[in-house]
Design a protein around this nucleic acid. Structure first.
Length: 556
DNA sequence: ATGCATCGCGCG
DNA sequence: AAAGCGCGCGATGCAT
């Protein structure tokens, strides 16, 4: 049973839809949270335009739902997937569901959190009847050649939307005093605004002295490049990795300055004031925010928290963090999707060690760099050199990414394990290709076209791996969420083990200390579930590295 | 004042 | 332009 919620001019309408797709009931709803709580006992799948427009209010009212369809996210998938390409949904002209809908705003531009009272601040959706949309989506899935794949994908995507809202609601525990302590340790006391902290100032003074550039603004790449040039250091950029190759007394303090300056501007006191409220960091997660299906985030740089400050992420008294990382996820997913048994067997333990044992390469480091090269499309350097050796040992896996690259070079679309398809290349790309074969083709146009083709091939090569890994991670989290709910007997979110952070192949669960071991077991079991959901009985394994810690900085 | 491109660097 | 993929965000520098 599905219950569709819709906002209309007259108020909220709930439409109940049977398993056969027939509308069995329509009613007006006064108190949405009460209604949802009441009907949740029937365990329906809720359907709504956008989870971020409905669920935060419910969570605030203490109401959770087990499952949903996020029609906006599902629409994007079904519109683009090769598995539903002939559906009415995919063939229709773009409409309200294709508009660049913005998730509901959770905060003011100044960073104040949760605009939750009153009507959602998001703009209305336009002509977009969610009941009609849901029915179109059902037809599209049912008529697909592989309804199981695409059906699992939209369910997983929707579960992700629920989890994203729940993680924002719960927030990541963040101890401001500890963060301040870390900053003071590295930078010195907090200066009045506009001033450089003393330690940053001191190291800058060294740089200026050693480069004989008393007024140097090190934050300006062009100024810095000139100053280095005057000291006889010729560089084509001022990136740290490039500066590291130089030998000059100014380089060490300069690199030190860059490191500290980055910390200050990205995660300094200003960041702390803006993003940490009442002991919690509440970023907005954006499911489906990346073309490959990975999540993006909005506000506070949630997916780029530097290791330096993770020590400020401290569990509540009597609670622990269970930090879990899916080891070598992408190559394992590749082995699964290519049904490459040799690579799957190499992954029985440490995958890279397994690759060495197979004789493909000599060292673990080589295995790693060769594998990365295969998934990213390296052509030169050590990585490009080692990759062919992998291809001999694992023809199915490497053949799979090579085929995806060739398809991309031809301008074709590629599709992940569960059915998310890559975007087609844009008009500029196509023009570049046709220019190369036109009457006015020159060496320049031809080489530009070839370079663009290769580049798009690297994108599609990586798309199938990164995208399928993102699907595995969604299934992992969805299964874990279900298991945690069972574990805690439906206790309120904040009183029982709950997800507080997700980073592509890593999750953090905040839980009462006595439950940590049990949570760890559920995380591992959920990884097994995810492997089965994507690859059925294939013997590909997904080991998980787990740390039970008091603060996030202690993990890894 | 505000927008946009670029550089640089954090994460996976 | 690091050896290749995907992001968000702050500072700078130039354009409007």
């Amino acid at each position: 049973m599905i219950v569709v919620l819709a906002r209309t001019a007259d108020g909220v309408v709930a439409t109940t839809i049977d398993d056969d797709g027939a509308v069995s009931d329509t009613e007006m709803v006064d108190e949405v949270a009460e209604y949802v709580e009441f009907r949740e006992e029937e365990r329906p799948r809720w359907a709504w335009d956008d989870t971020s427009r409905w669920y935060p209010d419910l969570l605030t009212a203490g109401v959770r739902v087990e499952r949903c369809f996020d029609l906006r996210l599902c629409h994007v998938i079904l519109r683009n997937s090769t598995l539903t390409a002939t559906s009415q949904l995919a063939l229709a002209e773009p409409g309200a569901w294709d508009a660049a809908l913005r998730p509901m705003v959770f905060r003011e531009p100044d960073g104040a959190l949760f605009v939750l009272d009153g009507e959602p601040s998001a703009e209305p959706m336009g002509e977009s009847d969610p009941v009609a949309e849901l029915l179109l989506q059902r037809v599209a899935v049912a008529a697909s050649a592989q309804p199981g794949r695409i059906g699992r994908l939209i369910a997983a995507e929707s579960a992700g939307a629920l989890i994203a809202a729940e993680m924002t609601f719960a927030g990541l525990p963040w101890r401001a005093e500890q963060h301040d302590e870390i900053l003071q340790q590295l930078l010195g006391p907090r200066p009045s605004s506009g001033e450089r902290p003393v330690k940053l100032h001191a190291v800058l003074a060294r740089v200026r002295e050693l480069l004989d550039a008393p007024d140097l603004n090190p934050d300006s790449p062009s100024e810095l490049q000139k100053a280095l040039g005057r000291a006889g250091l010729i560089v084509t950029s001022t990136r740290s990795w490039e500066l590291r190759k130089l030998t000059h007394p100014s380089i060490a303090p300069l690199l030190e300055y860059k490191k500290l300056s980055r910390l200050l501007s990205a995660n300094g006191w200003q960041w702390l004031d803006t993003w940490v409220v009442d002991g919690r960091f509440r970023p907005t997660y954006v499911p489906g925010g990346v073309v490959t299906g990975r999540w993006a985030s909005d506000g506070g740089g949630a997916l780029q928290l530097p290791k330096q400050v993770r020590g400020a992420v401290i569990a509540d008294d009597g609670w622990k963090f269970v930090v879990a990382d899916a080891s070598q996820l992408e190559p394992r997913v590749l082995a699964g999707m290519a049904a490459d048994r040799a690579m799957a067997e190499a992954g029985a333990g440490d995958l890279y060690a397994g690759i060495v044992s197979s004789g493909a390469v000599e060292t673990r480091d080589q295995a790693k760099v060769a594998m990365l090269g295969a998934m990213y499309g390296a052509t030169t350097g050590e990585s490009g050199r080692l990759m062919p050796q992998l291809a001999r040992q694992y023809p199915k896996a490497i053949g799979m990414v090579e085929a995806a690259a060739r398809a991309g070079e031809r301008g074709e679309v590629v599709t992940t394990t569960l059915g998310r398809s890559s975007p087609p290349p844009g008009p500029q790309w196509r023009e570049a290709q046709s220019d190369a074969f036109g009457e006015n083709a020159t060496d320049a146009t031809t080489s530009r076209a070839r370079s663009a083709a290769r580049s798009w091939g690297r994108f599609t090569r990586n798309f199938i791996v990164q995208g399928s890994a993102a699907e595995w991670a969604l299934c992992w989290m969805a299964s874990l969420r279900r298991r945690l709910t069972v574990l805690s007997g439906n206790a309120p979110l904040g009183d029982s083990p709950h997800l507080v952070f997700f980073l592509h192949d890593e999750v953090v669960v905040h839980c009462p200390a006595p439950l940590a071991d049990e949570v760890a077991r559920e995380i591992r079991a959920a990884a097994v579930d995810a492997g089965r959901l994507l690859f059925g009985p294939l013997p590909v394994t997904f080991p998980v590295t787990i740390a039970i810690v008091d603060n996030y900085g202690q993990a890894k």
